[in-house]
Design a protein around this nucleic acid. Structure first.
Length: 358
DNA sequence: TGCGATT
């Protein structure tokens, strides 16, 4: 039912190395990394509220510029919602990013300044190699090797974030200036630039991929081109729902008559802010995360809504997605209209005002 | 077939 040659399944662990269950009271608080630059706190809240009731939500911003640092925290009331959020939202593609959702560690001084910058790495060293090299000195939270955008080859530079600063300090002492086996050049290991200290226009190294870097470390997954939408991420919690392409790739042809016409109907699509999109033929068990996964890759999504029967709580077969930018909405519609989701062919268009005669 | 009643 899957294995259509065009299906793309993203193996989503990004090499993250968290694993221990030895955490204490962090069963409701999540850290969300690799958020799209433009994503607002409200949009984050909207996304995570699709899982369960959110107690609090905080997008971390640059103290001076107010710009998003690309990560934030979401605290749920219920631990089971937090767990579900990890299961269904981790690896979600939003615009040019793939977000990471994991339990937040308890905030403390000891975990700050535990990020290391490593250079002089042999070009053939993998992320796993890097972790193996550093793992003797502590618990690795994240690791990453920077790759050339075009060639995908290692730049010989990477980052290691330890759980504790003391672990990072020890790794510096033990590894700085040493020559990895099989290499000829010594590596440099030092503390990474701390975004909060450097008030320069230096992007926060630990969390935000630089603008030019469209890629994150890990295996060379091919980021999907904007006009070549390859649905992915088998919808974890909901089960199967493997997305498949059943339709030729479409190009965005400007001024596709119907699209434009519909979107301009009075009082319809553009309600205050954003363009509302109607999605029809959703399965009864559809949840919000399905809509996020479908539309997220195309651009800024403000909100999604699955319409449910009040008695059965099952989806009534349709839903709505509000996107910020017209262009992105058009591409999303043209790309998703006619796609097969499960065994259903979706119909996607700008929302019109059918019933509800104001 | 179809276009949000839980702020």
């Amino acid at each position: 039912m899957m294995a259509n040659g065009m299906d793309t399944v993203v193996q989503q662990n990004g090499g993250a190395t968290l694993g221990q269950a030895s955490q204490e009271e962090s069963k409701t608080n999540l850290i969300v990394n690799y958020l799209p630059q433009s994503m607002t706190q409200d949009e984050i809240r909207s996304l995570f509220s699709s899982i369960g009731e959110v107690e609090s939500c905080k997008l971390i911003r640059d103290k001076l510029t107010g710009q998003s640092l690309g990560y934030g925290f979401v605290n749920y009331h219920r631990p089971e919602d937090a767990e579900k959020a990890i299961n269904t939202l981790n690896g979600l593609r939003l615009q040019n990013k793939t977000i990471k959702v994991s339990y937040a560690r308890p905030s403390s001084e000891a975990i700050k300044g535990a990020n290391l910058y490593v250079s002089g790495l042999p070009k053939n060293m993998t992320q796993q190699d890097l972790e193996n090299l550093f793992s003797p000195y502590g618990r690795i939270i994240t690791s990453r090797i920077l790759c050339d955008n075009i060639t995908g080859l290692s730049k010989g530079v990477g980052f290691i974030r330890f759980d504790q600063r003391v672990e990072a300090e020890r790794a510096i002492q033990e590894l700085n200036g040493t020559i990895p086996k099989g290499s000829s050049e010594p590596i440099t290991v030092k503390f990474a630039n701390n975004p909060s200290n450097n008030n320069k226009a230096i992007p926060p190294l630990a969390y935000l991929a630089p603008q030019a870097t469209r890629r994150y470390g890990g295996p060379i997954h091919h980021p999907t081109g904007r006009f070549r939408y390859i649905p992915l991420s088998p919808l974890s919690s909901t089960g199967k729902a493997m997305l498949a392409i059943n339709k030729g790739l479409q190009r965005y042809s400007p001024l596709a008559g119907d699209l434009l016409a519909n979107s301009m109907l009075p009082g319809n699509a553009m309600n205050g802010s954003g363009w509302c999109i109607f999605v029809y033929n959703l399965a009864p068990e559809t949840e919000e995360n399905v809509l996020w996964q479908l539309f997220g890759p195309f651009g800024a999504v403000q909100s999604v809504k699955v319409i449910r029967d009040l008695q059965t709580n099952k989806c009534k077969g349709f839903g709505f997605v509000t996107m910020t930018n017209y262009d992105e909405a058009v591409v999303a519609i043209q790309s998703l209209n006619g796609y097969t989701l499960g065994n259903r062919v979706l119909q996607v268009s700008f929302k019109t005002n059918k019933s509800k005669a104001a």
